[in-house]
Amino acid sequence: MGDYVLLAISCILVNNILLAQYLGCCPFLGTSKKMETAVGMGMAVIFVLVMAGAITWLIEAYLLKPFGLEYLRTIAFILVIASLVQFVEMFLKKSIPALYKGLGIFLPLITTNCAVMGVCLININEEYTFIQSLVTSFSYAAGFGLALVLFAGVRERILLARVPKPLEDTAIGLVTAGMLALAFFAFKGMA
C-alpha cells in the first residue's frame, strides 16, 4: 500500500506530467484562462486517462506482446485512445447528460492531449503492473489537473495586470508556467 502512495505522490508532485515531463502543454495553455474550464479539463483528463491507461495496458499485455507486435504500439494506442474518447463522449451524452455538459467540450481535445498518450507509453516503458498502471494513470492525470487549476488561479490574477503588449497572453502564460514548474521543484526528492 505504501508503495502505491509513494508512486502516487511521485506522479502527482515530483514527476508532474506537465511541469516535469512537458506533456500536455497545449491544453494546459489553452484551457487555463478560466477556472471553470480548467476544472472541467482536469476532470475530463482524469476520467479518460484512467480508462485509457487500463485499456492500453491490457492491449499491450494480451495483444501486442504475445504476438511480438510491440512496434505497432504507437498506432494501436492512438487508435484506442481516439475511439475511447469518441465512445466516452457518446456514452456520456446519452446516459449522463449532466456530466456531458461539464466535460463535453473538452473530450475531443483530449485525443490530441499528449499527456494521455504519454502516460500510456510511460506505463509500458516502466513495465508497471496493471494496478500500478491504474495508480499512475490516475495520479498523473490528477497532477495534470492540479497544475492546471493552480495555473488557472494565477492566470486569472494576471489576466487584468498591466502586462506589456508583446508578452500578453501566451508569452506571459509560458513564463508563468515556468514559475509553476520552478515551484514544483520543491517536491524534489520527496518520493
Binding site: V154, R157, I158, A161, R162, V163, P164, L167, I172, V175, T176, M179, A183
Partner: peptide
C-alpha cells in the same frame, strides 16, 4: 515583477 505589469501584479 515587471513583465507581469510591475508592482502589485506579480504572482510570485
Amino acid at each position: 515583477k515587471q513583465i507581469y505589469g510591475g508592482i502589485g501584479a506579480n504572482p510570485f
